[in-house]
Amino acid sequence: MTGKRSRFLLTMLCFGMAFLYIPIILMMIYSFNYSKLVPVWGGFSTRWYTTLFQSEEVWAATSLSLKIAVMNATFAVMLGTLAGLALARIHRFRGRTLFTGMISAPLVMPEVITGLSLLLLFITLNQMIGWPASRGITTITIAHITFSMAYVAIIIQSRLAGTGQDLEEAALDLGAKPFRVLWDITLPQLAPGMVAGWLLSFTLSLDDLVIASFVTGPGATTLPMLIYSRIRLGLRPDINALATIIILVVTIGVLLAGWIMLRQQKQLANRQ
């Protein structure tokens, strides 16, 4: 990169990074504002953090969201890994076109459509077989698994696409039956992808407002639903505090995960 072009790219890069980060940083700064009016600085204070920690509503919503996120991530990794394996390793089966379509669609499907259609499914199922009796944690989890598994499948598929089938064939050749091969050889290879898929599913679930709002029932309020109900009416300093905590936790988590994966990749690179 030289000369004018380089300077232009550098400017764009700085502008882009500022665009991405200034709003977040300002939001975090105002969480320490004493004033009740968010944009008017009234001195440093941590009173909104205290308010936040004293709110039972916030604790309940957080624990519900975490429960859903953990269950979602676990099931999504199981289903998504199977789906990714099917996509990468089985080239001909009945319904493959439909299958690949159903895997790539949730990534771009507008949330309002997914949410509405799943809600109507749950209502229909309830009328037909009496299940799910009520909507809440179960229905939200099922809805989240459905779109999270698509992300996991894509991650697993792309990891498998880069590697040949030699290792699996070698194990078969040495007398391991197919499910044994899956357990002994394929899954250990996929472990980093599964970890990445789990983290992504966990985050997607924690992040979802629209789909959860559709398929939830009375009494089940997730953290995004709580935040949304508060900020709809305007700025709230306690939400700034909540945002600061969430962003810090996520950043630390992502840094940690990134560091672990980088280390694994280095080990892998050393092997080859």
Binding site: G164, D166, L167, E169, A170, A171, D184, I185, Q189, R271
Partner: peptide, 8 residues
């Protein structure tokens, strides 16, 4: 195997 396919 040509790649040896040793389990890493």
């Amino acid at each position: 195997f040509q790649s040896y396919a040793l389990f890493p």
